[in-house]
Design a protein around this nucleic acid. Structure first.
Lengths: 337, 337
DNA sequence: CTGAAAGCGCTAACAA
DNA sequence: TTGTTAGCGCTTTCAG
């Protein structure tokens, strides 16, 4: 069933059908009704590929979401969609797995959907000009930046928290409660990901507070998974190192870590204090509720869209935004006794 | 940059470029190298729309995932992908929001991607023949069935747990521990969704065990959200109804419910026992760990693909599979005292 | 092994 | 208000 068939059945030309389907104003009521009747009767659905191919332009803004089912992104996506639509654009979203190349996906989508701009939700921190050269529309990195890359600041935008500072703040919070032996749970301290940035903030804080960096208290679990955090911490606990607090670089890692702690009969926060970064919904429901530094998700979505549209419409230029986190008071931090 | 440009630059015809790009065997090494060089030099990416449009057929199997970021689906998707590829097909996945129409999305994708078959991951239970008439390839409903619909059993497949029985089992588990006042937390008892099916299992169990259905113990929170479950249960607790156990129809609703219980100073399972259905990863990490009836996710993904491919290749026919749940022993069920 | 040319289904001038 | 027609970028016969 193609537009041609519909045209024939309705006794009009394909262009008339096309006009009806696209709500063009210059169609007679009569033709409109005839076409719509046939369309509905036949359950006709236009072919998007053909549509996209024929069109020369669009008002599409693409969103490439890296890492499926990250609860953390859901709110941001919602906000992005709201603002994109409010500005008269259409959001086209695609989720890719963590192992896929977001740049490639973006470049592809740019051509397919004739994008006006692109938002990357999650991605690597080390893009080079060479790597992003295949994308030809303005783009903004949401939730990450180019910390370990070499992009020119005038060639991309980013909206993210200051991960180093967030980690610093987390450690400070523990320090202020008297903790001196602070373990850190991370993916790896040198993987060029957000794990590294937050680790660097941890180290900086220790320095500032006159604490010594103790490698024994650095727990690398080699992933951001809840399960790996659990087993990694569980194993680490066998060492019996002395510590009174634990900084987890991500909320869900904290969930894994806390179970490991419980299973070793540590009470939280009685024996061990725990703090993290992210502020996903689930950790509002842990027992005890996780104390964490929340990323301002709504704000991040909003800013990403605003910056992008400003650029698209020639009003603004690329910029790198660093947002502050908001501390969510939970019940996992106690005073060192 | 189109295939034409590449052809010109490489000094060959578009067909040769197309052959190279699609790994056709009948291309001279020389032509191949020339083309590849130009392609890489220019960062050329073929346009998928044009590609799809031109192609007459494919080996694609579509997956429409309903409800973004449902942690429950992640594992199933992984399994589906594995098996699809193993059988020489390609998985094409699309996520749609809970408010979108999965049938429409499937029908669209079928035409775009020239699908051989379709798997719906999550969806409504009340399809009618009329509604699915727009999809023209075999499809299987994964994680749900047509309980409230009117499809002919020979027109679709489904792979799901027996939700009614799972609910029954959950209630039985509580009953066997001596509980007689069993509250149920659900979205709504009559919304035609899985919430209703599980509610019916709850009612059936009460009947079988000679317990009276008490409307005061039916907690409708009007959604499947963790937050709504939390606030719904919290509010309900103000009534001070007598109960010793709580059956939550979904794991994440149990997370919300448990927080509400804690905040009212109920200890779990000391004062109140809790049981649920689903078996998502997060609830392995709650404190205490949730006792729940797990859906066999891997198996569900596998069966869906196997059934579909059997039909596609003319070996099998549509069927409705009902899988059993697996009880995960947690620590939220106690003996009534 | 290679090229020319006919579509794939739709949109958008351009004419009428 | 309508119809005709030329593409959009690619794949795929069909000849050569």
């Amino acid at each position: 069933m193609t537009i041609k068939d519909i045209a024939k059945l309705a006794g009009v030309s394909v262009s008339t059908v096309s006009r009806v389907l696209n709500n063009h104003p210059d169609v007679s009521k009569d033709a409109y009704n005839k076409v719509m009747a046939i369309v509905e009767e036949n359950n006709y659905i236009p072919n998007t590929s053909a549509r996209d191919l024929g069109k020369a332009t669009s008002n599409n803004i693409g969103v490439i979401v890296r890492g499926m089912s990250n609860p953390f992104f859901t709110k941001i996506i919602y906000e992005i969609n709201e603002r994109v639509e409010k500005n008269g654009y259409t959001m086209v979203m695609q989720q890719i797995s963590a192992s896929d190349d977001e740049i490639m996906a973006g470049a592809l989508m740019e051509r397919e959907k004739k994008l006006k701009g692109l938002i990357f939700l999650g991605g690597r921190l080390d893009y080079t000009p060479q790597q992003v050269s295949c994308i030809g529309v303005p783009f903004v990195c949401c939730t990450f930046n180019n910390k370990y890359g070499t992009l020119d600041k005038s060639d991309y935008s980013s909206v993210a928290i200051d991960d180093n500072q967030a980690a610093y703040d987390a450690v400070e919070k523990l320090f202020n409660e008297g903790h001196r032996k602070i373990a850190v749970v991370l993916s790896r301290p040198d993987d060029g990901s957000v794990s590294q940035v937050r680790y660097e903030g941890y180290v900086r804080a220790l320095n500032d507070f006159g604490l010594e960096l103790d490698d024994n208290l650095v727990i690398s679990v080699n992933s951001f998974n809840i399960a790996d955090a659990y087993s990694g911490v569980k194993e680490w606990l066998d060492n019996d190192f002395d510590f009174s607090a634990m900084f987890c670089i991500a909320d869900n890692m904290a969930m894994g870590a806390m179970r490991a702690l419980r299973e070793s009969d540590f009470s939280i926060p009685g024996d061990i204090s725990v703090v993290a970064i992210d502020g996903i919904e689930f950790t509002e429901y842990t027992n005890p509720q996780l104390s964490t530094f929340c990323q301002p998700m709504q704000r991040m979505g909003k800013d990403s869209v605003d910056i992008l549209i400003d650029i698209i419409e020639g009003r603004g230029h690329h910029r790198q935004v660093e947002l502050s986190t908001i501390f969510r008071v939970g019940a996992t931090i106690g005073t060192f006794k």
